[in-house]
Design a binder for these strands. Structure first.
Length: 227
DNA sequence: CCAGACGTTGTT
DNA sequence: GTCTGG
DNA sequence: CCAGACGTTGTT
DNA sequence: GTCTGG
């Protein structure tokens, strides 16, 4: 599954990979956590646009924002039907740029979990499949939120979880973002497991365990010689 | 009709 | 907002 | 996802 | 144990 990730790509890399219609410079992030601002790519009439919104989808009908922190992921198999996600799945799909995500290994007898950083080998940046939504707080202020879709894990991720984030192939970006597509049928094949042989992983420092730590050290290989 | 739920994950 | 349960 | 808190009252 | 905050 996916609860923490990195985005250190430059504006140029983002423009090229996502075909953005205007560049956006983002500060490098090594430890993006739920409830924080994340960058998403949306299709607008002018082109593909990058904006920042809160991670943890709050359905439009929610009475308070709390539910958002438990909706950081959405199951791809059911998002089209679930009340919390179906409206967003139909009309508000997005890409979530990423260049690595963390998984934690539970080692028996050890209290502290060992984090790993997972990457896609052949691209400097890649895309999670995401959904976004608008919620209005009690004062009427609009809050935009998002969620990352999940699928069953491939061999590389299975040691950590039975779920992994949906990673989209750039060839599928246009269909995923197409506002005219409002049914799950043509989208289901896009949400398959990303192949394990195109991904890699390495251990990183437990510094990343606390979402308060944003230092670059979070994403540095622990023992590069041994990996 | 109204009231109440609406989600994911991991762990046991 | 929309569906399910009573 | 993990870390960290987990409470009430009255007074300032 | 469970919820909240980041």
């Amino acid at each position: 599954m996916c609860g923490r990730f990195t985005l250190r790509a430059t504006a140029t890399q983002l423009v090229e990979f996502f075909d953005l219609f205007q560049p956006v410079e983002l500060p490098p992030r090594c430890n993006i956590a739920p409830t924080q601002q994340v960058a998403i790519v949306r299709q607008t009439p002018s082109g593909r646009d990058l904006s920042l919104l809160r991670w943890g989808l709050i359905p439009s009908w929610a009475k308070d924002a709390k539910i958002g922190s438990s909706l950081i992921n959405a199951r791809s198999e059911s998002a089209a039907e679930k009340p919390s996600f179906r409206s967003a799945f139909k009309k508000r799909r997005c890409l979530i740029p990423c260049d690595g995500f963390y998984e934690w290994e539970v080692i028996s007898g050890q209290k502290v979990k060992q984090p790993w950083l997972i990457g896609v080998g052949d691209t400097p940046v890649f895309a999670f499949a995401g959904l976004w939504e608008t919620w209005h707080d009690p004062a009427g202020v609009a809050v935009e939120t998002c969620s990352i879709l999940t699928t069953s894990s491939n061999e590389l991720l299975r040691p950590f979880h039975d779920r992994m984030p949906v990673i989209l192939d750039p060839a599928d970006f246009a269909l995923w973002l197409d506002p005219a597509v409002q049914t799950a049928d043509p989208l289901l094949p896009l949400m398959a497991q990303f192949p394990a042989d195109r991904m890699h992983r390495y251990r990183v420092s437990t510094v990343v365990n606390s979402s308060r730590n944003e230092r670059p050290e979070c994403a540095v290989p622990l023992d590069s010689a041994a990996q």
